[in-house]
Simulated scan of single mutants.
Amino acid sequence: MTAIEVRELRRTYTSRTGWLRPRRVVTEAVRGIGFDVGRGELFGLLGPNGAGKTTTIKMLNTLLLPTSGTARVLGHDVAREPVAVRRRIGYVFGGDRGLYERLSALDNLRYFAELYAVEPREQKARIAELLELVGLLGRERERVEGYSRGMRQRLHIARGLLHKPDVLFLDEPSIGVDPVAARDLRRTVADLRADGTTVLLTTHYMAEADELCDRIAVIAGGTIRALGTPEELKSRVQERDILEIEVYGADEAALERLRGLPGVRGVAAEERGAAQSLTVQTDRGADLHGQVLAALDGIRVGRIGSREPTLEDAYVAIVEASGSAAASVPAEEVGA
């Protein structure tokens, strides 16, 4: 049975620029996407910053109206039946907003239980159950202002589950969380799926998506570029080799030289302190070490290694193939 149905969903924004000659600029944030999420499924929505992930989630949980298209959550239309949708869903977002820091975790949950209309006779047992689920039992009487970021995120999840939602939206819940806390969050999310909760997760952490998600959709430039299980997405780059190169001071011109080499299928750079980590995807069996080093002539090179492709490599390949690692672009400009 389907928990979420999305058909040709679009969202555009209109803004005005200029003063003497103002223009109306129409930006398409989401461009006719479609997908289904089954009951009890943990579904990942991945994409670069501004790709349309959060806009999509906000339309699905009724915080934004679609410009066109349809979306249904548990059979209810998000535009025409927002109250019915809100009764059945929970929404947890990354960051520190949404909690009262000078209250204890227990008082926060009591307050939100009232807002969510949880029956008074059920509140005590429900709060205790959730505190145990997210690993905060024994710390619930401490003020939230003394909590670590990981503890706050776990409290966010408890808050979002107070009214026993059938569908839970997790929008980058582990952002800024240390590795130990992130591991605890992943365990909590996995427990939710095991209990039958449908979860739609957005994240920038590919290992997290690979570990948790039953299926993944990759969105870039406001459209769905790929959809499948983590293994199906990884199969797109199984015929590639991966070179990892530590460099210092590589500029965009050097990256373009690498991308122009025959046999190179993709190049990504990540800042790591004073160094950069270059990930170069090449055709399987192509020995391009010499050509790659020649393209980096004049740039200090550290360690060089090779490895098997991962979900992150598949994600990079999908986004680069889309021709847009950035998000929505102006679709139309109209004179005032």
Rank of each mutant, 00 (worst) to 15 (best):
L293C: 06
E145D: 15
L227N: 13
D107W: 04
V26P: 04
I224F: 05
G290H: 10
L212S: 04
T54P: 05
I127Y: 02
V78L: 09
L46N: 05
Y147A: 08
L99R: 05
R152F: 11
D241I: 03
R39Q: 11
V280P: 05
A325D: 03
G34K: 12
E81S: 10
C213I: 07
G138T: 06
W19N: 00
T197A: 06
R126P: 05
G44S: 04
G90M: 01
D195F: 00
E239N: 14
L99H: 08
T203W: 03
T197H: 07
P173N: 02
L288F: 04
R183T: 01
H163R: 12
V177S: 06
A158D: 03
R86D: 06
R272N: 09
A105I: 05
R126W: 04
R183G: 00
Y91W: 11
D171I: 12
P82R: 12
L109C: 09
L155N: 03
I216G: 03
N49Q: 07
S322H: 15
G228M: 07
R16V: 14
A51E: 04
E244C: 01
G146N: 10
A220M: 10
P66K: 07
H156M: 07
L288I: 06
Y116R: 09
S328K: 14
F112C: 09
